[in-house]
Design a protein around this nucleic acid. Structure first.
Length: 215
DNA sequence: TGCCAGGCCGGGT
DNA sequence: ACCCGGCATGGC
């Protein structure tokens, strides 16, 4: 089987096994971008607690949040961990949003995807995964998100080398899948859920994994 | 109890 | 270019 067909059949298999993920539904683009930073190297339960605190204090609007100092903001997001660095990263994002679109994220949706991606990567604290998460989940743009689970699953199935770089793995998906934000959205979510279910670090054999080996 | 979670940055080699 | 320590909370 070629890579195109394999990636599509994997998608079908994961979807049949796990069902729809429904990631980040019914939320504002800004809230999703904030979540993308808060969940860096952090489980979503903790990031979600920080989001709840922000919502309780009406801070999930960029104009409001930007009125706080980094130190003040940090107090609201403690459950997310790394709260001081993440507060600084949120302020960096807000500085960008103010300068780029006057806090109006709908303007970002009209921008060219690859050009916007480069601008996001210039923000200190936003690396490739966070940038792609914002593009895909907040702005509905077809930018595939790669993460630790993605790499681990493909490596354990002998599809890629263990030390493959982020952009190589991203290209691997984007070169072999149709350019479709809805597909990328669900595919990444399924890979993360599959990783939690069958491909934990301490579970090297993936015994019950429904994906087939590609040798 | 120690290990891990949907990373990223900065400094050293 | 690669490697490593730092950043921090909460759940199991």
């Amino acid at each position: 089987m070629n890579r195109k067909d394999l990636l599509l059949s994997w998608y079908e298999t994961l979807y049949a096994s796990l069902g729809p993920s429904g990631w980040w539904p019914g939320e504002s683009a800004f809230e999703i971008a904030v979540g993308a930073i808060l969940t860096q190297n952090t489980n979503w339960t903790n990031a979600g607690k920080a989001i709840t605190q922000l919502r309780l204090h009406n801070l999930l609007q960029p104009e409001k949040m930007d009125q706080l100092s980094s130190e003040e903001l940090a107090l609201f997001i403690r459950p997310a961990g790394y709260f001081r660095v993440k507060a600084a990263r949120l302020k960096n994002l807000l500085f960008f949003l103010n300068a780029e679109c006057n806090y109006d994220l709908s303007i970002l949706k009209k921008m060219d995807t690859s050009r916007l991606r480069l601008k996001l990567l210039e923000i200190k604290g936003i690396g490739p995964e966070t940038a792609d998460s914002i593009l895909l989940y907040a702005l509905d743009k077809p930018s595939f998100v790669v993460d630790a689970y993605t790499k681990r699953i493909l490596n354990r199935h002998a599809l890629v080398h263990e030390d493959i770089h982020y952009h190589e793995l991203r290209d691997f998906f984007m070169d072999h899948l149709p350019e479709d934000a809805t597909l990328y959205n669900e595919y990444h979510a399924l890979l993360v859920r599959a990783g939690k279910t069958w491909c934990a670090k301490k579970n090297p054999h993936c015994v019950k994994c429904p994906l087939q080996l590609y040798l």
